[in-house]
């Protein structure tokens, strides 16, 4: 397949643009059908939330794979300090959709108060800390939390999620430096948006990658195609295992493509995995429609429970 400006450079790929596994054994431990259902459910919910026209809302479509993969890898005792647009992860951790919607829609009765916009979510019952109002400070808190885990010999891994734009904030650089200096059990998950026409000035990105920056400070880092759930899962699996084994912090940079900018279909993680499943004979349009219908019904039922008119 001919490369396009939408195809990221320097990324690890396991499931290629055509939905073919380079190594047939690369996904043997994964229940890809179940993961596909999670991806598709997350997509449906994001699409419906986008249609609500919420102020400051930023769609997450195209960035689901790292969150679904992470959700599948984390243990109950693990903690996540979220950077926003992490609804698929919240659902994977077991946060009720009604609670997610209370927070995202700013309704009364939410257990956790989150900053407005961009799908920020949190749950004290599920060790999911929402983003701070001040940009990026939750990453500093995450390194402190990981430090407490290390000092107290508490099992578990801490994960901090954020987008590439946040890496231009000084607090992130400081948190990365502390994590590396103290060899903390933390995984940094950066969802880097793909900018086919070069990033805008506001993004503050100057040609390098987050992965390259972390590698240069001696941190274990990988840069993977965020449209490839298999590669993302593999990188995060290794990163979490390293953190659990006390081998220090890790950075997993996942290059994701915002779908609202109409990239080619193979940049969509749902479509990429769908192609694989179809070739494997485990996908049909009917099964696809059923998953979508279930997700839509679940979303509408939750809104109804909350008394929200669509």
């Amino acid at each position: 397949m001919e490369r396009t400006p939408w195809d990221p450079e320097g990324v690890e790929v396991r499931l290629n643009e055509a939905g073919q596994l380079a190594d047939p054994n690369a996904a043997e431990r994964l229940d890809l059908r179940a993961l596909f259902e999670q991806l598709l459910t997350a997509r449906v919910i994001d699409t419906h939330l986008t249609h609500l026209g919420l102020p400051m809302w930023a769609p997450a479509a195209g960035g689901e794979a790292p969150l679904v993969a992470l959700g599948a890898l984390l243990h109950e005792e693990d903690w996540v300090f979220s950077g926003g647009r992490d609804i698929p992860l919240a659902l994977s951790r077991g946060v009720a959709l009604t609670e997610v919607l209370r927070q995202v829609l700013g309704l009364g009765g939410a257990r956790v108060r989150v900053p407005a916009g961009a799908g920020a979510v949190g749950s004290s019952e599920h060790n999911l800390v929402p983003p701070t109002e001040s940009m990026g400070l939750q990453v500093g808190m995450a390194t402190g939390f990981a430090h407490a885990q290390k000092l107290g010999r508490v099992p578990g891994v801490t994960v901090a999620t954020f987008g590439e734009g946040l890496t231009t904030v000084g607090a992130i650089a400081e948190a990365l430096a502390i994590a590396a200096a103290q060899s903390l059990p933390i995984v940094f998950l950066c969802k880097s948006q793909l900018w086919p026409d070069a990033p805008p000035a506001e993004a503050g990105i100057f040609g390098d990658s987050v992965h390259a920056r972390c590698s240069s400070m001696g941190m274990w880092a990988r840069r993977v195609d965020g449209a490839d759930l298999v590669a993302v899962h593999d990188a995060l699996d290794t990163a979490c295992a390293r953190a659990r084994d006390g081998l220090g912090p890790c950075m997993v940079e996942c290059v994701v493509t915002p779908l609202h900018r109409t990239p080619p279909p193979h940049r969509d993680p749902v479509e990429r995995l769908r192609r694989f499943l179809e070739a494997a004979g485990t996908w049909t349009q009917t099964s696809h429609d059923i998953v979508e219908a279930k997700a839509k019904s679940k979303f509408q039922k939750a809104l109804h429970e909350l008394g929200v008119d669509q």
Partner: peptide
């Protein structure tokens, strides 16, 4: 923020 994270962690 690092101190706050330590406090969150007990």
């Amino acid at each position: 923020t690092h101190a706050a994270g330590l406090a969150i962690g007990g």
